[in-house]
Amino acid sequence: MTAAFRAGPRPARRPDVLRRLAGASLPYQLLTFTVFAAGWELYARGWGGLLIPTFTETVAATVELLGSAELWRAMYVSNQALVLGFGIAVVVGVPAGIVLGRFRLLERFADVYLNILLVTPMAAIIPLLMMSVGFGLASRVILVTIFSIVMVVVNSRTGVRQVDPSLIEMARSFGASERQIWTRVLLPGALPAIMTGIRLGVGRAVTGMVIVELLMVSTALGGLILEYRGLFKAPLLYGTIVIILAEALLLISVARWGERRLTRWAQTTTARNAR
């Protein structure tokens, strides 16, 4: 045992599997999930009754749902609104945010509306939308857009504003045209923040997609939720929610992956600054 207290150089340690596991976040997530699932199972068995299914029942119902045509039809219909609505949010929101970030005067006009979009409880708009646009795909698309566009606009605006002014001056000194300043300096510089806005926007878009179906038009996934609730089919109700959560998580992970890939430089810079 004296070896442990020996002075002088020590042999390099082999990479320790346990230590590497402790460094990753997945084991912790698995651990909390196991505790959560066990707690759920115990509670539902003891005091659950008709309305709260057990964890195992929920898993079984989820698997059952994944095999049913009804769910996939609902997914298809719901995601139409998500894809269109979020697509519009990105296509409109990114340029809008960039322009607002570059031209301060415009921002004075737009600021109040952005704040309204940020703080308004969106559910309150739904009756207005129904009255003016109707119950079709259009109002679901609009609601998804309204839900998600704020995140995209605000983050794109911040991104443009964060671009170091000395980079713009540098580009001008090398004869860059206004267009080159946009394409070679402002847009690449704002990209990390734009990607963050897209990731945050995806989460809000999924929320919007479900809320509009719950409150306004009971179709698709929202319709399924309402139907299973009405029929007291608690496991299927929970299973539907699990599937929606899974989709949201998947979309956000994809967005985060894209963010990391496209903006590796920004992460090395922040890591350096944090040190």
Binding site: S166, F174, G175, V185, P188, T263, A266
Partner: peptide
């Protein structure tokens, strides 16, 4: 600005993504 002059900046002014 013209091609006959070029500048070196105090804070380097390098594009961090390039």
């Amino acid at each position: 600005p013209g091609p006959d002059r070029s500048m070196v900046f105090q804070n380097f002014a390098l594009l961090p993504w390039a």
